[in-house]
Design a binder for these strands. Structure first.
Lengths: 139, 139
DNA sequence: TTAGGTTGTGCAACTTTGTTGCAAAGTGAT
DNA sequence: ATCACTTTGCAACAAAGTTGCACAACCTAA
C-alpha cells in the first residue's frame, strides 16, 4: 500500500486533501482501462456510497484532475486527466463508445477536431464521441 | 390548416401513418428554430402526453425522419432531418449548445469532422457537440 | 355503414441517474 | 485530548426516460 503515496501526490498537486476514500477512488479510476460511471465505481468499491463518489468526482473535476463525457449511454463517464491537464479546449481528446460492450474509452492520442464557428459564437467546450464497435468486440 | 398536407407528405414519404398527433408534433419540431426536448414539446403542445411524444419521436427516428443528440444538458434534443437524409455518418452535422440560453442548434452546414480510427474499430455514429455562447447571447 | 382487428394515445406507475440535507464520523491543528 | 472544520453515509428527492394497460381512433372488408 506504500505506493498509495503517488495517488496522494496527485491529489495534493491539485490541491485536494488526500483522504482514504479519495485515494481509493482515484486509484480505481486510474486502474480502469475504460471510463467509469458512478455506478461502475459503486460496484468496484463495495465500501463507497454513490453520493460520496459523486461529490468526490465533482471535486476532482473542479480541480481539473478528472474529466467527464456524455457518451449517450444515459450515464456520464469519468476518467482521470493527464498530469498536466488544465482541461482547455486544445487539450481535449476524442472518446469512443462501444455499442456492444458499452464501454467508453479515452482516445488521448486523438485530439478533438476544431472547426471554425460562425461570427459571435464563443467556444468553451467540445463533446466528441465516436460510436461503434471496439477492437475487442469486432472479432 | 390546408398546408398540413406538406407534413402529411413528409410522414408518408417515410412510411409513417400521418395521424393528427404526428402532424402536430412534426410541425412543432419544424417550426422551432432550436432543437427540442420532450419536455419542450410537452410545454408547446398542451394536448400531448410525454409518452406519446416519446413514442412518436422514437418512431420518427426509426424512420430517419428525425435525429437526436445528447447535448449534455440532461435531456436529449431532437430535430427533424433534411428531406433526403438517411442518417449516415457522412450526413451528420455539428451541433451547438449555448451554455447561457440552454438552447441547442443544428449547424446543418457544418459536417461532423471524421478522423481515422485505430484498426478493428468500426464507426457507426458520431456525437459532436460544440458548447459555448451563441450569437444572440454574446452581445 | 358497420363490424372487427389493428394501431395510436393517455394515464399511471416505475427505473435510472444525478443531486441535496442532515447527522455522524473522520481529520488535523493547537 | 479537544475543538472546529471537512468528509462521508444514509435517506430522500428530482428529472428524464420507459413501459403496461385500457380506451380511443383508424382502416379495411364485407
Amino acid at each position: 500500500m506504500a505506493d498509495n503515496i503517488i495517488y496522494e501526490e496527485l491529489l495534493k498537486k491539485r490541491d485536494i486533501r488526500p483522504t482514504a476514500m479519495r485515494i481509493l477512488i482515484l486509484k480505481t479510476m486510474i486502474d480502469s482501462p475504460e471510463m467509469v460511471s458512478i455506478l461502475d465505481l459503486e460496484n468496484k468499491l463495495e465500501t463507497a456510497e454513490k453520493s460520496t463518489i459523486f461529490r468526490t468526482i465533482s471535486l476532482f473535476m473542479m480541480h481539473n484532475l478528472a474529466h467527464c463525457i456524455d457518451d449517450g449511454s444515459g450515464s456520464l463517464k469519468y476518467a482521470v486527466c493527464n498530469s498536466e491537464c488544465s482541461c482547455s479546449i486544445k487539450e481535449l481528446h476524442a472518446h469512443f463508445y462501444c455499442e456492444k460492450c458499452k464501454k467508453t474509452y479515452c482516445m488521448k492520442s486523438i485530439p478533438v477536431p476544431l472547426i471554425p464557428l460562425p461570427d459571435k459564437f464563443t467556444l468553451n467546450n467540445i463533446n466528441y464521441v465516436l460510436k461503434g464497435i471496439c477492437d475487442k468486440c469486432s472479432k
